[in-house]
Nucleic acid binder design. Structure first.
Lengths: 225, 225
DNA sequence: ACCTGAACACCGTTCAAGT
DNA sequence: ACCTGAACACCGTTCAAGT
């Protein structure tokens, strides 16, 4: 992306600003997409934008701030909300978009999971979901719980599909590397051998199950409606 | 746990074996429980068992092997299976146990998510779940998808409760650190202010929703049964 | 077989310059 | 204000000893 050129800068402050936050963030995303999240170090990133490691500290307070800013950068321009009277459709759209972000930047999953504090922008899907579930007639506490159910499923599923952290959770991979001493996993072996993953269908299946369950729980909690 | 004693060992091979795998693994778990997963480095662990960093390489091929072995160690003696004819009950028991392991060792979550390949023992809940869902009459592909739904929910939920990686996903924390420039999150603010988490209830809610959804999906796919 | 010790290529970050 | 450069305390791992 940036020339890793050997154009040595002299020691003082350069005339024009050399770095901008967005420039650094774009380079960070490119680095993650190209070489994976573990390659995003202050020193490598500094090298990628043609600057000394310490120059980054003029724009970010430290690595945590950088990571948080990258996460913010990734979701900043995503539209999670959609019109429509049907709360099921709004939820499907919202988490579909969330899944889309993750699939577009697989490395972002590990990045997120190493964050100490998430940027607030990450919670826009939560806000939308709570509003939608209010329309669905769920109580406040049930709505929060349903949100966590939805987001845990979506993130986990997309992470697995992206193969990024959760590649480790691929039973096929574990079976293969486990070699011979593995036994007693007939169902898994059959499932692994039998089919190829249809991730779109699996995602849709999960949302369908959750929404069907929510409708049922909603009915039970206010049987008069 | 181990004396960090200054008992310098002389250079050659000691008379009795100094280290054993289980000894190292126990120390690793203790270190994670005591100081968090990011403190589990080869050098720190070596220090904790009173040995040079390189001594660990006689028992583990590298850090990945160590991490994988720790994960294996944690789930090795857990019984995920239970008797009983009801597949719902078997699933509840299995994932309740899985949640129990995570809550007992919060740091294990981040450890797992940094694994390149998971040990096969981690998939015992998968085997049990697929068998249970077969009893429930689900098709093979639906069963696999349902397993991922269940495990993603359980891991995410327990990780959040353990506050370990996913503490970052606490909207209250993000709100607080976000300070003033946060707006448009009325539902979240209300949810955060309103109630304290009842994690047991939230976990039960999620399982109930999923199982209810699975029953419904099962009914739809074989309406004649 | 199983440990020590020095060395290498990394890492985040502090502190002191420079202009 | 914004960059360079040296330094510090880490990290995983290789390689050469020792017995």
């Amino acid at each position: 992306m940036n020339e890793e050129g050997e154009s040595q800068r002299s020691r003082g402050r350069p005339k024009g600003a050399v770095l901008s936050r967005d420039q650094v963030l774009a380079a960070a995303v490119a680095l993650i997409d190209r070489e994976g999240p573990e390659s995003l170090s202050m020193r490598r990133l500094a090298g990628a934008v043609g600057v000394t490691p310490m120059a980054l500290y003029n724009h970010f307070s430290g690595k945590q701030d950088l990571l948080r800013s990258v996460a913010e950068h990734l979701v900043a321009h995503v539209e999670f909300a959609c019109e429509g009277p049907d709360w099921r459709q709004r939820i499907r759209f919202c988490f579909g978009r969330l899944r889309g972000v993750i699939l577009a930047h697989p490395g972002a999953v590990r990045l997120m999971s190493n964050l100490e504090t998430a940027p607030m922008a990450v919670f826009r899907p939560m806000e939308i979901t709570l509003a939608a579930l209010e329309d669905a007639g769920l109580a406040d506490d049930a709505a929060v719980r349903a949100y966590f159910l939805l987001t845990n499923f979506t993130m986990g599923q997309a992470a697995y599909e992206a193969g990024e952290p959760a590649d480790a959770l691929d039973p096929a991979k574990a079976l293969a590397s486990g070699g011979l001493e593995t036994g007693g996993f007939e169902h898994i072996e059959r499932a692994v051998a039998f089919e190829r993953w249809d991730f779109d269908a699996a995602f849709d299946f999960g949302l369908t199950v959750i929404i069907a369950g929510l409708e049922q729980v909603g009915r039970q909690s206010r049987p008069s409606a």
